[in-house]
Design a protein around this nucleic acid. Structure first.
Lengths: 341, 341
DNA sequence: CGATTTAACGAAAACGTTTTCGATATCTAA
DNA sequence: TTAGATATCGAAAACGTTTTCGTTAAATCG
């Protein structure tokens, strides 16, 4: 009933634990005959090494931690999938924790992972995170850390990101090229770097192209939900009847806005063009389908793990490590919600 | 740099490791003064017990494994969220593995979890799984197992499910009540219990209500994708021009079908009524919005963990355990894709 | 044949805890 | 004053591995 141990194998075979262990790992100083005997018995007994004993001894847990703001989210679940897939290839397991966009929870989860002695941590920051002591503490304890998507530029570690600013610039430029004259922007909360950068890209595209930047056209949303999309779409129509284009921080909000526009008889893209951000699966399915920026979640997950893995290895070999920031390519996906043909 | 251990605390305080350990766990046989000293030092040194040593000693890893067919999926990510949330409350961590709907991978992942000595495992079966030896082996090794959503009735363990048959019955009945005369069905692959039960519910609703069951109206899909939805919608229109209602196994497919209907000028619900299954977020957002069965993923996750937790506890206390199957309520969400007002 | 290499194995320490069981030292009661 | 109770501590074993370093016996060599 209880799991099989090396000791049991050793006793039934009348040899030492040491030899059993070595036999299973193909040490050169054990005879072929003994190896065969041990391996056969291990097989029939369905022996599995106790991972905790191994970890205790070798200091390698072969487990990494992942902290994300929200699991139920197309982008993040793609990231998860990418990470798990890549981790599996290297024999790593991944423990997933949610911060629910809360700084306090994020700290707590990090503590938990630390006590579990994970070999490394992958994190995408909560919106509320403005202080980075917990991350620096982690670094100080010498546990490899790589941040992705929602990062803190200040923290000195490897990162994998997209160029939010450039992508937002492209999105806004696309609206300008489509002939839009008054372009609004729904942005995210003030803290996370993404919403800042996307806003900056929007602004830069305007001023670069002889559009005047009008702060009253920028709306700051809180939770980036469908309902916020419908609400602020209503506000926008009330405040500015001359807006003919809008760049929206996130597809979900954009979809909410489009729903509201549809409901009020405002035609997309004839009356107002809409560009989203993320390329959720959903955005290709709604009517009209949404022009958006493709954000490669799966690839980001894979890359983030690869970076972490490399860090784990270089530390293990006592090589000097350098932090890298890899920037993933984003694409503008033109669909029906903008009218550039 | 290296993590703090009991030994270090003991040495700097000039007391034994035993006393330090006891002090931290508030054993009665250590003086208040010593306790204070130990706790203070532990705090300033940021001591965290080595989880692997603890596990090795206590046989409790405080970690559970979760195997699901696919991470990037609204329903499953909701389940994940529910599980993580509940696990956190009880101090458990969860390791997530994907089977990618493959039986072979499912077996491998289970093996992995076993070697990690998780305290229990939560699983939703891959579509391809028709043999259950790996699950029975797990049970034989005395590790708690609870299955959810995609289960095997044959395996003797706790389960949390919805009544797929009843829900499908309700969905089909709703089409009948809406006045549909010829009702088709897009079903899933032959193996998983869900698609069998949903099909059975569909069939039963027909025969219970003076509709003749016509096998040619049932289409068997493979991967349940958006594209399959569009493809089979086309096939359906080609094969049967008299169909006026359809019950579809999954929202994603239903959304594909509706997109195809829209494209071909077939009006939903005027020409054909559509009912989906799952209540993805997306289904409230498309046009027309989709009538569907709400499948409570988050709650299912919470319930599954609770069941597992209870099993872990009763085994620990050597109490006799009985397997429970809890059935979660589903609701019919009536929206625009059916015309019952 | 003696010396040396090689092959095969095992003892033991270590990883960091938890917990049982004794060992002191102090205190109380008679 | 002394027997017993009580308070406080620590030694040591155990959990299941991995790995270093010996040890022995057989094989090889000159």
């Amino acid at each position: 009933m209880k799991p099989v141990t090396l000791k049991q194998i050793a006793e039934t075979l009348g040899i030492s634990i040491t030899t059993v262990s070595k036999a299973l790992k193909d040490y050169p100083d054990v005879s072929k005959k003994t190896k065969r005997l041990v391996k056969e018995l291990a097989e029939t007994l369905n022996y599995k090494p106790n991972a905790f004993a191994v970890t205790l001894r070798t200091k390698e847990s072969k487990t990494i931690g992942l902290i994300i703001p929200e699991v139920v989210h197309h982008f993040f679940s793609s990231v998860i999938k990418g990470i798990i897939a890549q981790a599996e290839k290297k024999g790593y397991l991944v423990i997933i924790l949610q911060s629910n966009e809360s700084y306090e929870l994020e700290k707590k989860q990090l503590d938990l992972l630390l006590s579990k002695r994970v070999d490394g941590v992958l994190i995408s920051l909560a919106n509320g995170t403005g202080d980075f002591k917990h991350l620096n503490d982690l670094m100080a304890q010498d546990v490899p850390l790589v941040m992705f998507d929602k990062i803190a530029k200040i923290v000195n570690c490897s990162k994998v990101i997209i160029n939010d600013r450039k992508a937002a610039y492209t999105a806004t430029k696309h609206l300008i090229n489509s002939g839009c004259k008054r372009i609004a922007h729904f942005r995210g909360p003030l803290l996370p770097q993404n919403s800042i950068d996307r806003f900056l890209g929007y602004k830069e595209a305007l001023t670069d192209n002889a559009h005047t930047y009008d702060p009253s056209l920028v709306y700051i949303l809180e939770d980036m939900s469908f309902d916020e999309g419908t609400y602020f779409a209503g506000e926008l129509l009330k405040d500015h009847n001359d807006v003919d284009g809008i760049f929206i921080n996130t597809d979900l909000v954009a979809i909410g806005a489009i729903a509201e526009f549809n409901k009020r008889g405002v035609k997309v893209p004839e009356d107002i063009s809409v560009v989203g951000f993320s390329n959720w699966f959903m955005s290709s399915v709604i009517n009209p389908s949404l022009t958006t920026i493709d954000q490669p979640g799966y690839k980001m997950g894979k890359t983030a793990f690869k970076l972490l893995y490399k860090e784990i290895k270089t530390r293990k070999n006592n090589q000097t490590l350098t932090y890298k920031t890899v920037e993933l390519k984003t694409d503008l996906i033109v669909r029906e919600s903008t009218n550039l043909y």
